[in-house]
């Protein structure tokens, strides 16, 4: 399955958002997520199924003004 991960094409077999995050090594990381432009809370990642061409954002704290 091809998705768009942080703006780039990405091949994954993850069935849901939680599997994707764990597979990327973010299980314990300080990250937040969105799918197709909408926020997905950490508690809802497992129930968020991924489908072809989904647009996933995984973000973390960064410097800001």
């Amino acid at each position: 399955m091809q998705i768009l991960l942080n703006g780039e094409r990405f091949a994954t077999d993850a069935h849901n958002l939680d599997e994707l995050c764990v597979g990327l090594g973010f299980a314990q990381a300080k990250v937040a997520t969105a799918v197709n432009g909408s926020f997905v809370a950490a508690a809802a990642r497992q129930a968020t199924h991924l489908t072809e061409a989904d647009e996933v954002e995984i973000v973390a704290p960064r410097q800001g003004g």
């Binding site: 090594g25 954002e57 973390a60 800001g64």
Partner: peptide, 13 residues
Amino acid sequence: VSLRRESARARTG
């Protein structure tokens, strides 16, 4: 602060 896309490799955040 802000939030930005996190790379699985760099893990900058």
